[in-house]
């Protein structure tokens, strides 16, 4: 049977009038929805990670260190930054991180871009430390009715400011170390590093597969969003958007479950029986031990202060 046998008359109608070109751009511009923007952001972030995996991570000081040693060292320094009680040690850690970034050919601007949101968030979280409710002091910024005066007092601000500064610095140090790790280590190397640090291989494999298949599922979600957009004129109301989102979520869940089944079968088919066997990796060399020694030194210094 020919594919178009019995096509209804409306389907056979050809449109004679052209599209009104003069009306282009005259309609209301609709802002993109929260779901669209979130999907775009997550997908572009994952794509950036993948682009880095293509070799744009470059070669530098940190990249020359074996991934497990690199991971161990950065974790030790991050731990030092998290437990030190002395601002000089914290300052030195931030300085060392900046120098490491430069030595690893990671731009300081890129590092700051990745660290800044956390620093701003930490600052906002700490703002109550500036406000004086019960401490005496000279009123500097009146807030609220005088009978229930809440004020920023100079003594409290002076007392709180160093705490805020110290906390935000701690956040900056830890987050910039994490950012440095992600900027100098491909996901593949990171997962291999975790294996060498004796993190159970099955756990590492699960983490890697989550990362790997998350990208596929995100691509499906992005395609679903684009398919919806290609058939939508104007902006859908909230109820329709909610229904659309729920149906797409169900589709992705179903795809995720099917993919999980198939991946499990593909692993079993190639001899996987529950114990994930991998290469042991090359031995550590001098510079790896030097780096581990340095990071342990920073960690022990932080214990003393």
């Amino acid at each position: 049977m020919p594919p178009l046998n019995g096509a209804p008359s409306w389907f056979k109608e050809a449109r004679e009038t052209p599209c009104p070109v003069h009306a282009a751009g005259r309609g209301r511009h609709h802002a993109r929805g929260y779901v669209d923007r979130s999907l775009d952001n997550i997908t572009s972030f994952t794509k950036r990670l993948i682009a880095m995996d293509n070799g744009t991570g470059g070669r530098g000081a940190l990249q020359s260190i074996e991934p497990s040693a690199r991971l161990f060292g950065l974790l030790a320094i991050a731990l030092a930054a998290a437990i030190t009680a002395h601002s000089i040690v914290l300052g030195l850690i931030i300085l060392a991180t900046a120098m490491l970034a430069l030595g690893s050919r990671v731009g300081l601007v890129e590092l700051v871009k990745r660290t800044a949101p956390s620093a701003v968030f930490a600052f906002i979280m700490m703002t109550p430390a500036f406000l004086g409710f019960i401490f005496p002091g000279e009123e500097t910024l009146p807030m609220g009715p005088s009978a229930y005066k809440t004020a920023l007092t100079s003594s409290q601000a002076a007392y709180g400011a160093p705490s805020v500064f110290f906390f935000v610095s701690r956040v900056v140090a830890v987050v910039s170390l994490a950012a440095l790790l992600s900027l100098t280590t491909t996901p593949g190397a990171l997962f291999n590093g975790l294996k060498r640090l004796k993190v159970p291989p099955l756990f590492v494999a699960t983490l890697f597969m989550t990362f790997r298949y998350l990208f596929i599922l995100l691509t499906i979600a992005e395609d679903a969003a684009l398919a919806g957009k290609s058939r939508t004129i104007g902006r859908a109301d909230t109820a329709s958007s909610r229904r659309w989102f729920a149906s797409r979520a169900a589709l992705i869940l179903k795809k995720a479950m099917n993919t999980a089944d198939e991946v499990g079968m593909a692993m079993a088919s190639r001899g996987f029986t529950g114990t994930f066997k991998t290469f042991t990796g090359p031995p550590l060399v001098g510079r790896d031990y030097l780096w581990i020694g340095f990071s342990l030194f920073v960690f022990f210094i932080s214990l003393g202060f």
Binding site: P187, G188, A189, F191, N192, A205, F208, M209, R212, Y213, I216, T259, E262, V263, M265, A266, M267
Partner: peptide, 12 residues
Amino acid sequence: FSEPDVQLFCPT
């Protein structure tokens, strides 16, 4: 497998 993506799950 028909779909190579399900078969390729290692880092490299």
